[in-house]
Design a binder for these strands. Structure first.
Lengths: 212, 212
DNA sequence: GCAAATTAATGATTTATTCAAG
DNA sequence: CTTGAATAAATCATTAATTTGC
């Protein structure tokens, strides 16, 4: 019997360290090729898949932005408070776009982005640095064409290939030359993740149509 | 010489008709398996890939929601106007979540979601009906492990598999039994799309940090 | 009529948000 | 509470309609 294989990837300290190092080094949105190499490299330290790497960077970048927004928001609050005490004409209105949505309540999924002041967040920090060239590809791959059940055979379905190619200028924000990993032979890895979100907290408004 | 191969999928009338029929029939977020079948079926009427089908449903659903929001927004405006004339106590505050962001200007990409009234959109219409079970899978697949160039060989990189499985209750909003397609043998199809968006309208705020 | 110029649709990509495991 | 995973919203970019001046 399988020892309760964790339903999601759990990065080892080494893996995490390497990922963070790369992130600090300037890799924010690795290309598919880069992801391959990173995955191959990190798999030396524990089980890992391409999607884990992809998601990790995705999330890390997003949460960086979020933290930045939050910080700026706080900062602004202070300054605002300061300004209320010492009213000078407003000079940082552009910063409003960085603000945290004031009345967003995490966990209360029907109300968000609703503030009462009149200005809000959703900044466009994207492409602030490291403009990248992207390249997407899809392919369909059927192993045996006999899947009536969805029983974890692991390699049927529509495959989506992310290929975010960075240009040749990899020395963006940080001046670091951004050392690239060497090529690694990668063998296929497949896994399924199941979600049984039929009766869980999703769709909280089944019975009462007037909930939202 | 190639007849200027369109950089993006252009659905034939038949394909469009079938897709719309399925959508009306209740298919909003087809599973990977369904996408395979749909793709195979539609490829009888013209060139098509799985990603096209996936994107089509994604976009169609999103723009449906959008249209609904817009309609409700208009409606609300009228009612609001009405209420200003005949002030009754507020009963549809929940409808605020459906409102269109009042000061969103299409084409003016730096300002959005910014209204001056105090309430806004971004409704969670998902799972309002047809609660679905999802199932994601990734896999990495390297054909020959010799890709230093990204020259359109079409099947390397990280593959992401979307497998949105509908439960057994397919008779959701519309009472229609939602006839499913038969099984088709599907062979792999791959294609590359290139984007050269390095100097185009992206990153409009490189020089002036105070733009947003 | 017709082709350059605008605008509207919509295919494709990226980012923000939410869910939920640990 | 952190964070991996999943989904939807926003955005970008290209194609089709449509308009306009000739």
């Amino acid at each position: 019997m399988a020892p309760a294989p964790s339903s999601r990837w759990c990065p080892t300290p080494e893996q995490l360290m390497i990922l963070e190092e790369m992130y600090r080094g300037g890799v924010k949105t690795p290309s598919a090729t880069q992801i391959q190499h990173i995955t191959a490299h990190l798999s030396l330290y524990g089980k890992i898949e391409g999607k884990n790497v992809f998601y990790w960077f995705q999330n890390h970048k997003a949460r960086d932005r979020q933290k930045l927004r939050r910080r700026l928001s706080k900062q602004l609050m202070i300054q605002h408070h300061h300004q209320q005490l010492y009213p000078i004409n407003h000079h940082q209105h552009f910063l409003h776009h960085f603000l945290e949505p004031p009345c967003y309540i995490p966990g209360f999924h029907q109300v968000h982005h609703c503030n009462s002041a009149g200005f809000l967040s959703q900044a466009q920090l994207q492409n602030a640095c490291c403009p990248q060239m992207v390249d997407y590809t899809w392919k369909v791959e059927i192993p045996g064409m006999k899947e009536t059940e969805k029983s974890a055979t692991g390699s049927y379905g529509d495959d989506r290939v992310f290929m975010t190619d960075m240009g040749s200028s990899l020395t963006c924000c940080s001046g670091r030359p951004l050392k690239t990993l060497e090529l690694f032979p990668v063998t296929a890895t497949g896994l399924d993740h199941k979600k049984t979100a039929l009766l869980s907290s999703k769709s909280p408004n089944v019975s009462s149509p007037a909930t939202n």
